[in-house]
Amino acid sequence: MSEAGPRRIWLCADDYGISPGVNRAIRQLLTMGRINATSVMMVGPAIGRDEVKALTAAADSQPGAAIGLHVTLTAPFYPLSLHFAPLAGGMFLPLAKKLQSSLLRRYDREIVRAEIAAQLAAFKEAFGRLPDYVDGHQHVQLFPQIRDAFLSAVQRAAPRAWVRQCGRNQALTRRLSQPKALLLDSLSVQFRARAHRAGIAFNPGFAGAYDFGQTSDFGAHMRGFLDGLPDGGLVMCHPGYVDQTLISLDPVTDQRERELAYLAGDAFARLLAEQQVRLS
């Protein structure tokens, strides 16, 4: 062990509430101590009382585990507030149109803030407390206009929560080879600046973005994610058991089971020890 001691990071499983199979996988990894945070979709179909109770028990079994709100503003999910716009068939816009509309400044910030506030209120009602942190499904918290509404809602309703930024700590040459992550880097610059001005804490480093559409070695990805991640940094992941609910809502299916298998296995435990990383 180095004199500086181990790095302590957040390993956060996104999408609790999207389906029973995803929920079960996340609770399994929490209980095993293989993740230490999960982000909850309050607009998901699998976030009833029993699922909330089971998640709370799993998190309580691991001291320091965090439960956050996964603000969701993209299809195929529906808003909680009454006057959210624009919508398509009553649902939020798909991701590409959401980003395009935000870049063109087509949103009313107060309407977006009201929806995020409604999701924060739903979390508080379900869990009996405010979230430990707040992030966004498909990284919507980083988008222009939405980021201002997001930070305003968090500052008002959950001022002690930290928020997720998605900028990495890697050499430029490596970043240029990963277009998706490069976009997140770019969007995170202004997000961090605005969060800092608002006095809202955020993670100092981020990793976890890769092409979910390709069959790939998640263990190799995880090794890369940990490379250069600072103390207090965050790695997102998407473990889950595939079920019909998930298939009907999200294109990321089989890759979730590959992530789950790796995170629950011995190779991941060895990597954490080798890299002197602790989930804390």
Rank of each mutant, 00 (worst) to 15 (best):
N203R: 01
Y107W: 06
T253L: 03
F123P: 15
L229V: 03
R24S: 08
L55R: 01
K53I: 05
G44D: 00
T253F: 13
E110Q: 15
I26P: 10
E259P: 06
R175V: 13
Q141P: 07
R270H: 09
D185P: 05
L80K: 08
Q155R: 09
L95W: 00
G44N: 07
A59G: 08
E125F: 05
F225C: 15
A13Q: 09
A261P: 15
L93R: 09
I146T: 04
Q138G: 14
A201P: 01
H139C: 15
P86G: 01
S152C: 08
A126D: 11
R168N: 02
I247G: 14
I35N: 06
I26T: 02
G233M: 11
Y133W: 12
S188V: 09
Q28D: 07
N23D: 04
S81P: 06
G68C: 04
A46W: 02
I67C: 05
G167Y: 02
L151H: 00
A88N: 00
R256T: 13
L187I: 11
A65C: 12
V252K: 04
G90L: 13
A58H: 01
L120C: 04
R27A: 08
L184R: 00
L229S: 04
E259S: 00
I247E: 07
A118L: 06
L73M: 12
M236I: 11
A4V: 14
G17L: 14
Y78C: 15
V235C: 13
L249K: 00
L272N: 03
R129C: 13
L95K: 09
M91I: 02
R156C: 01
G208L: 08
S61N: 12
G224H: 05
N36H: 08
L263A: 02
V43C: 07
D60S: 07
N203Y: 04
Y262T: 11
I146L: 12
F218Y: 09
L151P: 06
T245G: 12
D217Q: 08
D15I: 03
A57H: 02
G68H: 02
I18Y: 02
P251I: 07
H83D: 15
Q244A: 14
L172V: 15
S248L: 12
L130Y: 02
A13T: 09
L82W: 10
Q275S: 09
D15C: 11
E115G: 08
G224P: 05
H83R: 12
L182C: 06
L279I: 07
A261N: 14
A85R: 11
V52H: 03
H238A: 10
Q276P: 06
R27V: 05
R49F: 06
Q190A: 15
V112G: 07
L30G: 07
F84Q: 13
S39D: 00
N169C: 11
S188G: 05
R194A: 12
P86S: 12
A220P: 05
P63L: 10
G219C: 10
L103V: 13
V189D: 03
A201H: 02
R256P: 13
S101H: 10
Q62H: 11
V189Y: 10
D135P: 06
H238E: 10
